[in-house]
């Protein structure tokens, strides 16, 4: 039996395969060229690049956590609520007369882990619908964040952590470099270790994964905890960057996070959620929205762009996934 040329090359050397893999990367490049030509003075500048990278840290941290959950075949809509709640919690606790920033940070991260555990208790053990459980958990946390903040905007007390979050390295905020470190870790674990294989197997064929000895329950719980923990970290970074916290501060990140991850699934290893793809997806969103703003287009375009891109991304992911399976 000889294979047809279109599937003969495992590394995807045909033009369609190449396009399939790099279409999002090419889109980013095309947008950069487009906006640079249109706004050479403001868009194509080092300053703008530094701004884009710095401001994307929070989205990237959330997105990397979300990548892990989606790869495990579950989903988590509570992440925006976790960001809000943990951001507000950290701000309230870190005043020197309360717990101080060190303990506040630890408590906040533990809160993130606990939220992930509660999510997984209902989703994995009770087998409740993940969509509803995490949507409800997000709303619940959103409410709690109002309670903790007394529905007011809180100023973040100055601390070494706050200073570090605002610090710049090569002109780019420290959180961005932290995000890069996180990316390397997630990329390493997902693409290069047996744990990563177990994660993908769990997401793509749960019973088949169990058969070869994958502890499916443990993998799913871990993934849900990772996503909540990532959102908790993102909450701390977000309040550190803005210097203030109020209820609902995480809400604007929910949709872009999903858009980034699904755009990412159409990149590099088409049909699979992967961390590098997520970063490329987030970059596409950032370049697109920043560029549109610099063009002076009304700000509602941002949401139209993000929403539209998400639909395109899930459609692409569905088509690619179907191709991968049926081929």
């Amino acid at each position: 039996m000889t294979a047809s040329p279109s599937i003969a090359s495992p590394r995807g050397r045909t033009l369609t395969d190449f396009l399939e893999r790099y279409v999002v990367v090419l889109a980013v490049a095309a947008l950069i060229v487009l906006f640079s030509v249109a706004r050479p003075a403001t868009f194509f500048t080092v300053g703008n690049l530094q701004t884009i990278l710095t401001t994307q840290s929070v989205l990237l941290i959330i997105g990397l956590g979300l990548t892990v959950v989606l790869a495990a075949g579950d989903l988590d809509l509570s992440i925006a609520g976790v960001v809000s709640f943990c951001g507000v919690l950290f701000t309230q606790l870190s005043a020197p007369e309360r717990l101080g920033w060190q303990i506040a940070a630890i408590v906040t991260l533990i809160a993130g882990v606990l939220i992930g555990l509660v999510n997984s208790l209902f989703i994995v053990r009770v087998k409740a619908n993940a969509l509803i459980v995490t949507l409800a958990m997000g709303t619940l946390l959103d409410g709690l964040s109002s309670a903790v903040s007394n529905s007011q905007s809180l100023a973040l007390p100055a601390s070494p952590l706050d200073a570090a979050i605002s610090a710049r390295f090569f002109g780019v905020g420290l959180p961005f470099w932290f995000t890069i470190l996180l990316l390397v870790i997630v990329w390493y674990v997902l693409q290069h270790t047996p744990s990563g294989r177990s994660l993908y197997f769990t997401g793509e064929g749960r019973e088949a994964a169990r058969l070869v000895g994958v502890r499916v329950t443990r993998v799913r719980v871990t993934a849900l905890v990772i996503s909540a923990l990532a959102a908790a970290i993102a909450g701390i970074v977000l309040v550190g960057q803005s210097g203030a916290a109020q209820a609902g501060l995480g809400n604007p990140f929910l949709l872009p996070a999903y858009a980034s991850v699904f755009l990412g699934a159409a990149t590099l290893t088409p049909g699979r959620f992967n961390p590098v793809g997520t970063v490329v997806g987030a970059l596409l969103l950032a370049v697109g929205t920043t560029g549109l703003q610099l063009l002076g287009i009304a700000s509602w375009v941002t949401n139209v762009f993000s929403g539209g891109i998400l639909i395109v991304a899930v459609a692409a992911a569905a088509l690619l996934g179907a191709r991968r399976i049926r081929a």
Partner: peptide, 20 residues
């Protein structure tokens, strides 16, 4: 249901029990 993982590659399915 519990054969190979359909969307994973032939290679990933073959090496799964031996990854350790």
């Amino acid at each position: 249901v519990a054969g190979g993982v359909p969307a994973a590659t032939v290679s990933e399915n073959l090496s799964a029990p031996s990854l350790g």
